[in-house]
């Protein structure tokens, strides 16, 4: 059970990483300053979670 739970934990980091990358990609594609700012704010928790800071 512990092993499965550990794998599930890693999957969550993977999910956060993939969504984070998609947010970055959308940011790069964006032409609207407002959207850029919002993407930047939304990206913050994804980056810090994947880096295991928070």
């Amino acid at each position: 059970m512990q092993t499965i739970q550990t794998i599930i934990g890693y999957l969550y980091y993977a999910i956060a990483a993939v969504i984070g990358i998609v947010i970055v990609a959308n940011f790069v594609r964006s032409r609207d300053v407002r959207k850029m700012l919002l993407y930047a704010i939304v990206l913050s928790p994804f980056v810090l979670r994947v880096l295991r800071v928070k």
């Binding site: 940011f27 790069v28 300053v33 850029m36 700012l37 930047a40 990206l43 913050s44 980056v47 810090l48 880096l51 800071v53 928070k54």
Partner: peptide, 19 residues
């Protein structure tokens, strides 16, 4: 974009370091 990234880094680096 460069300005937004710079602002973001100015926020997330000190904030993240404190955390």
């Amino acid at each position: 974009k460069i300005v937004v990234v710079a602002l973001w880094l100015a926020l997330i680096i000190p904030g993240g370091r404190q955390l």
